[in-house]
């Protein structure tokens, strides 16, 4: 599904040059649940933004669904994003002026989904994340966990092939965090590819593969089960 080859991204200010991604090579297959780990500033969020086409790489190639995206126009990228990708953020990023249902319906509006179909899809997805009873509330009236469940609902309502989650549990307590992770796992089990950035090793264990990053490079890739086994051996 995703093939990155020698992908680099450099941020420049007038006197500092920061290499956020340094010749990254990465392949992600359909149906994978990948966790990206690493310390602050290692480039994991940049990687996610590039994957989500919210940011463009300076060099290298990015093939998404068998087609190169690094040379596409803003408009084309918006179309790809709309079609195939859902996002979940650490800070939820819900629109305060809209209700829960309206927030979730937003992607469908840009998809030009007919109203009846849209209402149905919103209702179903809200029920699946167990927040349907709050459909007419504004985001500020919900707890953090509830807000994130709304964000998840919004991310999946268009049934995207790929979900990008940027520390989705970062602002949540353990219980709520677990709930969100369970939701992601469930989506993954239904066939959605998930790439999740996280700080937390225990959260990474929900993934099928962990990518460790440092200073814009990928250090290692472990299949979660194998890593656990190797740690057990060393112990």
């Amino acid at each position: 599904m995703i093939k990155l080859h020698n992908l680099s991204k450099v941020y420049r200010t007038s006197d500092v040059e920061t290499t956020a991604l340094n010749s990254v090579n990465l392949e992600i297959d359909r149906g994978e649940f990948v966790a990206v780990m690493g310390p602050s500033g290692c480039g994991k969020s940049t990687l996610l933004n590039v994957l989500g086409m919210l940011d463009s790489p300076d060099s290298g190639s990015y093939v998404f669904l068998d087609s190169e995206v690094s040379q596409r126009t803003e408009r084309e990228l918006a179309a790809v994003r709309k079609q195939h990708i859902g996002f979940i953020f650490q800070s939820f990023n819900l629109i305060d002026e809209l209700t829960v249902a309206e927030n979730v319906a937003l992607p469908l509006l840009y998809h030009k989904t007919p109203a009846a179909e849209r209402d149905q899809a919103v209702r179903e997805v809200l029920e699946s994340v167990k927040i349907a009873h709050r459909a007419d509330h504004r985001p500020q009236q919900l707890s953090g966990g509830q807000q994130q469940r709304v964000a998840v609902a919004r991310a999946v309502v268009t049934q995207p092939k790929l979900i990008l989650a940027d520390e989705p549990t970062g602002n949540l307590d353990t219980t709520n965090g677990e709930e969100v992770l369970n939701l992601l796992e469930q989506l993954n089990s239904e066939g959605t590819t998930i790439v999740m950035v996280t700080h937390d090793r225990s959260h990474a264990e929900h993934a099928s593969r962990v990518v460790n990053m440092l200073d814009g490079r990928i250090l290692s890739e472990n299949v979660v089960g194998m890593q656990a086994a190797s740690e057990a051996r060393h112990a």
């Binding site: 989500g52 919210l54 803003e74 408009r75 918006a78 179309a79 994003r81 709309k82 079609q83 996002f87 990023n93 819900l94 629109i95 002026e97 937003l106 992607p107 840009y110 998809h111 919004r154 268009t158």
Partner: peptide, 13 residues
């Protein structure tokens, strides 16, 4: 933020 979210969920400029 609203602009960002709308773009993320598929709005073009």
């Amino acid at each position: 933020k609203e602009v960002g979210i709308r773009k993320v969920v598929g709005a073009n400029r």
